[in-house]
Protein backbone atom coordinates (compact mmCIF):
# COMPACT_ATOMS: atom_id res chain seq x y z
CA UNK A 1 0.00 0.00 0.00
CA UNK A 2 1.21 3.47 -0.85
CA UNK A 3 0.22 6.68 0.85
CA UNK A 4 0.66 10.14 -0.63
CA UNK A 5 0.57 12.71 2.13
CA UNK A 6 0.09 16.37 1.37
CA UNK A 7 1.12 18.89 4.01
CA UNK A 8 0.03 22.49 3.69
CA UNK A 9 0.16 25.55 5.89
CA UNK A 10 -3.11 26.13 7.70
CA UNK A 11 -5.49 28.71 6.36
CA UNK A 12 -4.81 31.97 8.08
CA UNK A 13 -1.10 31.21 8.45
CA UNK A 14 0.85 33.54 6.19
CA UNK A 15 2.72 31.61 3.51
CA UNK A 16 5.72 33.72 2.41
CA UNK A 17 6.76 31.15 -0.20
CA UNK A 18 3.28 31.06 -1.71
CA UNK A 19 3.22 34.85 -1.84
CA UNK A 20 6.58 34.98 -3.63
CA UNK A 21 5.49 32.33 -6.15
CA UNK A 22 2.26 34.18 -6.78
CA UNK A 23 4.25 37.36 -7.43
CA UNK A 24 6.47 35.54 -9.90
CA UNK A 25 3.48 34.01 -11.71
CA UNK A 26 1.83 37.42 -11.94
CA UNK A 27 5.06 38.86 -13.38
CA UNK A 28 5.01 36.11 -16.00
CA UNK A 29 1.60 37.30 -17.12
CA UNK A 30 -0.58 34.72 -15.36
CA UNK A 31 -3.07 37.37 -14.29
CA UNK A 32 -5.66 34.75 -13.44
CA UNK A 33 -3.69 33.55 -10.41
CA UNK A 34 -5.58 34.64 -7.35
CA UNK A 35 -3.60 32.91 -4.62
CA UNK A 36 -0.79 30.36 -4.23
CA UNK A 37 -0.02 28.14 -1.26
CA UNK A 38 3.14 26.01 -1.22
CA UNK A 39 3.16 22.70 0.61
CA UNK A 40 5.01 19.43 0.55
CA UNK A 41 4.35 15.87 -0.52
CA UNK A 42 5.56 12.81 1.37
CA UNK A 43 5.20 9.42 -0.32
CA UNK A 44 5.17 6.55 2.14
CA UNK A 45 5.30 2.92 1.10
CA UNK A 46 3.68 0.59 3.61
CA UNK A 47 4.34 -3.08 4.03
CA UNK A 48 2.41 -5.69 6.02
CA UNK A 49 -0.71 -3.59 6.26
CA UNK A 50 -3.95 -5.60 6.32
CA UNK A 51 -6.42 -3.15 4.85
CA UNK A 52 -7.16 0.48 4.10
CA UNK A 53 -8.62 1.05 7.54
CA UNK A 54 -5.36 0.04 9.17
CA UNK A 55 -3.36 2.12 6.69
CA UNK A 56 -5.51 5.16 7.49
CA UNK A 57 -4.89 4.79 11.20
CA UNK A 58 -1.15 4.45 10.64
CA UNK A 59 -0.87 7.39 8.26
CA UNK A 60 -2.88 9.71 10.47
CA UNK A 61 -0.76 8.74 13.44
CA UNK A 62 2.45 9.46 11.49
CA UNK A 63 1.15 12.84 10.42
CA UNK A 64 0.12 13.84 13.91
CA UNK A 65 3.32 12.62 15.54
CA UNK A 66 5.89 13.81 13.04
CA UNK A 67 5.09 14.65 9.44
CA UNK A 68 2.93 17.71 10.09
CA UNK A 69 3.33 20.33 12.78
CA UNK A 70 -0.21 20.87 14.09
CA UNK A 71 0.58 24.45 15.13
CA UNK A 72 1.02 25.63 11.54
CA UNK A 73 0.19 22.76 9.19
CA UNK A 74 -2.74 20.67 7.97
CA UNK A 75 -2.43 17.33 6.23
CA UNK A 76 -4.43 15.22 3.83
CA UNK A 77 -3.61 11.95 2.10
CA UNK A 78 -4.61 9.43 -0.50
CA UNK A 79 -4.05 5.67 -0.39
CA UNK A 80 -3.21 3.53 -3.36
CA UNK A 81 -3.15 -0.27 -3.51
CA UNK A 82 0.02 -2.05 -4.55
Amino acid sequence: MKARIIITLKRGVLDPQGKAVKGALTNLGFDQVKDVRVGKVVDVELDGVEDRAQAQILVEDMCKKLLANPVIEDFSYTLEEG
Binding site: L9, L14, P16, A20, N69, I72
Partner: peptide
Protein backbone atom coordinates in the same frame (compact mmCIF):
# COMPACT_ATOMS: atom_id res chain seq x y z
CA UNK B 1 12.28 23.17 22.02
CA UNK B 2 9.21 24.18 19.99
CA UNK B 3 9.09 20.94 18.02
CA UNK B 4 9.56 18.94 21.21
CA UNK B 5 6.67 20.79 22.83
CA UNK B 6 8.81 22.15 25.66
CA UNK B 7 7.84 25.63 24.50
CA UNK B 8 4.63 26.64 22.69
CA UNK B 9 4.37 27.79 19.08
CA UNK B 10 6.27 27.06 15.87
CA UNK B 11 8.86 28.58 13.58
CA UNK B 12 8.07 29.52 10.01
CA UNK B 13 10.32 30.57 7.17
CA UNK B 14 11.55 34.17 7.49
CA UNK B 15 9.10 36.62 5.97
CA UNK B 16 11.64 37.73 3.35
CA UNK B 17 12.44 34.08 2.51
Amino acid sequence: LLEAGLLPGAMMRNKNL
